Amino acid sequence: MTRLSVNINKIATLRNARGGNTPNVCKVALDCERFGAEGITVHPRPDERHIRYQDVSDLKALVSTEFNIEGYPTRDFIDLVVKTKPAQVTLVPDPPEALTSNAGWDTVKNQAILIDIIKEFKAAGIRTSIFVDTNLTNIEGALTTGTDRIELYTEPYATNYPINKEEAIRSFVVAAKKAHELGLGINAGHDLSLENLKYFHENIPQLDEVSIGHALISDALYYGLENTVQMYLRCLK
């Protein structure tokens, strides 16, 4: 079974644009769980332009499904995660000034750094995942870091899906097979949507979890949050 984790960053973006506490990030997280989501994902950044560090603490006290904190491993981020102790931490190689995640880790070049960081998280009892592309060298390198899972960066798949879905999925199938052979769990995220999620899921049977934010929250503007969560869940059946 592939879990759906809803990334609620965009809810925080909307709240921060006006100030105050509308929409309420915690209420939306609880509603997503109530509507069937099996996880909640947040990506706090140093400038707190969407999810704030206080949000992370508030959500930890409320979320009853799997709580996933993703982000670039600055010292402040590492300390926040160790203090919060989510079910999972996902390490993303996007520097603080990046608009959004746009690449996976070079796990060979960053091997020593990732080993040290992952060791700290695992000592705190937190499952680890690292963002990677479909380059098999990076997937093999991920194994040496000690991570429990990888998260496949799916923007290239989403971009090419409308052009040639068979070609778009090809490298992801190979990458997922290699990761599974190595004993790594497999997550996926970035630009997955109602248009392309079902096909991705059908072709990657080893998939443990998908993390979806921008498309799901955007769809909720038209379909309503409860209906949208259910629509995404049906793509994973």
Rank of each mutant, 00 (worst) to 15 (best):
T2F: 02
T2K: 04
V6Y: 02
I8K: 01
I8Y: 01
A12Q: 04
A12Y: 00
R15T: 10
N16C: 08
A17W: 12
R18E: 12
G19Y: 14
G20N: 09
T22G: 04
P23V: 11
K27G: 04
K27F: 10
V28L: 13
V28T: 11
D31Q: 11
E33P: 10
F35V: 11
F35S: 04
F35W: 12
G36E: 08
A37G: 06
A37V: 07
T41P: 00
V42W: 00
H43G: 06
R45D: 00
D47E: 09
E48C: 06
E48F: 09
E48G: 06
I51A: 01
R52S: 08
R52D: 03
Y53A: 06
V56F: 12
V56Q: 12
S57Q: 11
S57G: 10
D58S: 13
K60W: 10
K60D: 02
L62P: 03
V63H: 04
S64H: 14
S64I: 13
N68A: 12
E70S: 09
G71F: 00
P73V: 06
T74V: 00
D76M: 13
D76P: 02
I78D: 12
D79H: 14
V81C: 12
K83G: 10
K85E: 10
K85S: 14
P86G: 09
V89A: 10
P95F: 02
P95V: 12
P96N: 00
P96F: 01
E97I: 03
A98G: 07
A98P: 03
T100W: 07
G104K: 01
V108E: 09
N110F: 09
A112D: 13
I113P: 01
I117W: 04
I118D: 06
F121N: 03
A123S: 05
A123K: 05
A124N: 09
G125H: 09
I126A: 08
I126L: 12
T128H: 07
F131D: 00
N135V: 02
N138Q: 10
E140A: 05
L143M: 08
G146F: 02
G146A: 08
R149T: 07
E151T: 13
E155F: 05
P156K: 07
P156N: 05
Y157S: 05
A158F: 05
A158R: 03
Y161R: 00
P162M: 14
P162N: 15
K165C: 13
E166A: 07
E167D: 14
E167V: 14
I169G: 02
I169P: 02
S171L: 01
S171R: 01
V174P: 08
V174M: 14
A175I: 05
K177D: 10
K178R: 14
A179K: 02
L182A: 04
G183T: 12
G183Y: 11
G185D: 03
I186F: 06
N187P: 10
N187H: 15
D191R: 08
E195K: 03
F200R: 00
H201D: 14
I204C: 05
Q206P: 01
D208H: 15
E209K: 11
V210P: 12
V210L: 11
I212L: 09
G213I: 05
A215K: 13
L216A: 13
I217N: 12
I217V: 15
D219V: 15
A220G: 15
L221K: 14
L221A: 15
L225I: 11
V229E: 01
V229I: 15
V229T: 05
M231F: 11
M231Q: 15
Y232Q: 00
Y232H: 09
Y232F: 13
R234I: 06
C235G: 13
C235W: 01
K237H: 15
